[in-house]
Amino acid sequence: MSFFLWDFIKGDLTILPSTQSFDRKLVFHVPDNAGLIWSEWEDASIVYDPRSGHTQVLNEFARELLALYEDGPKSLDQLLAEFSKIIDAEPDATTTQNIIETVAGFDNMGLIEPI
């Protein structure tokens, strides 16, 4: 399972931060004033963040994770638990790492923020 996240604002490509120090206890949410605007096509979802002016493309995996945050605030462990329910299995180590990187990417891009 792979994901990609690009930041295309003015041609800059965002480098995702290290996930080594990611705090699993932090509770993140999509801010109420985010006002994210979506365009969805068969292969990906594109989101425009009017607060930053940034445009990102999310594949189905990343879109699903962000949708979970849109449902309500969550810590990483809570997110993993909900994700497990969706796929009806415990995510393996690779998937878990992908989830952590994706969440770190969301945080870096300002799509989610800690409470």
Binding site: W6, E42, A44
Partner: peptide, 8 residues
């Protein structure tokens, strides 16, 4: 091509 590619 995909619509996403065309968009970007």
């Amino acid at each position: 091509i995909t619509k996403t590619m065309a968009f970007f």
